[in-house]
């Protein structure tokens, strides 16, 4: 039985489309990430699950029960808002205990829960403070504390780390993931940052314009992108997708391999799979070099297409230098040039 399942759920506001007939399921204890560019419907999906929006069509199940018509309070879930939504006039302790007090939990339970959460999140010394006396990271932990104290089986998070600086964000990612596994929660986590999705998720749902583009594990998303959209969304830098005609024009080997289908096929190749060298490689001109520390990203012009290459160490070279690029044929991804979907059989 799926912990959360959506069946053909749609939501629109007049002409503005939120989500369009989306269906997916996730198992209990999974860390599910909703990923996609701005405006693709991530928040809408999350709010539909929470019951903060009513679906126009379709059905929503939580732990096997149809909750489509139930109010948020009866869906047994907790939520962390992007803005944290802490109550500014209540102390940290009162914020965390808000839900338990609403449900009139026994005082002993409240005290025990608060102590446990404060310990877990390192908030013990801050319980008497008001939210505006906390740093962004601390506020986030309070929001998290409020979400986990009731130990609801499902926790929803809408871009909870987007207000934090890079270092704190990395730290919180690890902590969140550890916490989720420790408490065995089913997590639905919204982000537009593919690196965040890849590092935290058990399952990623990539959304595009209110539809599901791909629903897969991070490994699968990386290794077998279902479309050029996914290919171009995942990876730093993302996969190069080059029209077959361009490759055929600059390289006789590729012209032979693609043959008459050159116009129908787009070739995808990850920057980290490309090597310099090989006399029969694809010829390109260096357009720019970006140094990232452990490695460098070299931008190469290939006819009128542009190609990123990721290589170890710090590379130096004049712009316009001619290089030859080569890659393992097994690392080649083939897509339909017109529709963008992955071609299962690859290059015969």
């Amino acid at each position: 039985m799926a912990a959360i399942a959506l069946e053909g759920v749609s939501k629109a506001w007049g002409d503005s489309r939120g989500v369009d007939r989306i269906s997916f399921a996730t198992q209990a204890g999974q860390f599910l990430v909703l990923l996609g560019p701005s405006g693709c419907g991530k928040s809408t999906t999350l709010r539909l699950i929470a019951g903060l929006e009513q679906a126009d069509a379709g059905r929503i199940f939580i732990a096997g029960d149809d909750v489509t018509a139930l109010p948020p309070s009866r869906r047994h879930l907790s939520m962390v808002f992007q803005s944290y939504a802490l109550f500014p006039h209540l102390s940290v302790a009162e914020n965390i205990l808000f839900g338990l007090k609403v449900r009139k939990a026994p005082a002993a339970d409240q005290r025990r829960g608060l102590a446990r959460v404060a310990e877990l999140l390192g908030l013990a010394g801050l319980l008497e403070r008001k939210p505006n006396q906390l740093s962004g990271g601390q506020q986030q932990r309070v929001a998290l504390g409020r979400a986990i104290i009731a130990e609801q089986p499902v926790c929803l998070m809408d871009e909870p780390l987007s207000n934090l600086d890079a270092q704190l964000r990395n730290e919180m990612r690890r902590e969140l993931r550890a916490l989720q596994q420790k408490l065995a929660m089913t997590m639905v986590y919204v982000t537009h940052d593919q690196a965040e999705a890849m590092s935290m998720a058990d399952q990623v749902i990539l959304l595009r314009d209110g539809r599901i583009e791909q629903d897969a594990t991070p490994e699968e998303l990386y290794a077998r992108p279902a479309s050029t959209f996914t290919a171009r969304f995942i990876g730093t830098p993302p996969m190069n997708v080059i029209p077959g005609t361009v490759l055929a024009r600059v390289n006789p080997g590729w012209a032979a391999r693609l043959g008459a289908r050159a116009a129908e096929i787009a070739i995808g190749i990850r920057p980290e799979d490309i090597r310099f060298g090989a006399a029969d490689g694809v010829e390109a001109a260096v357009a720019g070099i970006e140094y990232l520390g452990a490695d460098s990203v070299v931008t190469c012009a290939l006819g009128d297409a542009v190609l990123a290459v990721r290589a170890k160490g710090k590379l130096r070279g004049p712009a316009g230098e001619r290089v030859r690029l080569d890659w393992d044929p097994a690392a080649t991804h083939c897509f339909d040039q017109a529709g963008g979907q992955r071609l299962a059989q690859g290059l015969a």
Binding site: S73, R74, F81, A85, V102, R146
Partner: peptide, 21 residues
């Protein structure tokens, strides 16, 4: 922020409770 009311609704607070607290 409307998020405050939504956060309270998820915790199961009635409208009266949310108003009072």
């Amino acid at each position: 922020s409307p998020n405050l009311a939504e956060a309270a609704a998820i915790e199961g607070a009635s409208r009266w409770h949310f108003f009072r607290r």
